[in-house]
Amino acid sequence: MIEIQDVTKRYGENAVVDNVSASIRKGGITSLIGPNGAGKSTLLGMMSRLLKMDEGVITVDGLDVNQTPGDQMARKLAILRQQNHFEARLTVEDLVTFGRFPYCKGRPTIEDKKFVDRAIEYMELGDLRYRFLHELSGGQQQRAFVSMVLAQDTEYLLLDEPLNNLDMRHSIAMMQQLRHIVNDFNKTVIIVLHDINFASWYSDDILAMRDGKVVYHAGPDVVITPQALLDLYDVEVTVETIQGKSVGVYYGAMTVATQRSTQPGND
């Protein structure tokens, strides 16, 4: 379980995450959704110790993320952020093998190699295994990065918009793989998503944020509703039930209040 207690993060005067408390259950997929600037990525960054909070404490299974030794944390929780551009020329296999670093410290055993092979297979990267990352498309790179954190084989997997750059097919594959590892290996996935329908379809819980605060923390049936989405996004979303899942239809929807007042004369 991840316990977030009274956590605040400020940039200057502005509290990007404002006195948030929540507990994210172990097992299952919890999605973080909300409009731009709601504080989702910042909260995820603090859960993964990449960002330090100004106030509050976050614990993972009772371990304070900022007090626990780095390599112990790295075997407990893996994080993948956005914007993973780097100059280093590594092959896909090299990158995924680094996912085993917390265990083998750079000298992978046969056991570690098995994890690497499985992670590469999972993300359908077999053909690209020996290619350099910079030769790959954005979507292929993204899959390689996810493959690395899968190889890390942690109980908790934190992903910041992993569907970025992915086409429809690979987005679906990614979410299904996450669902699969959650179900089969009892992992906990916490994921920042922009597409409310992916969140609705695959999540067990949705943590919805706006203006640095958690507005909803419940199942998709509660959060993916016209009222909740209006509260969150200022958009009048029609919600349909398709194959037993709530699906929001918003492509031609009315936007209300805030957007309209800031952009006069657009009609």
């Binding site: 993948l80 780097f86 996912g99």
Partner: peptide
Amino acid sequence: AADRFTVAGLGESFTTNLGLN
């Protein structure tokens, strides 16, 4: 320390995620 330098070359987030200071 070769691997540490490679990991550092992937950036601060990657390095922290892999448990290195």
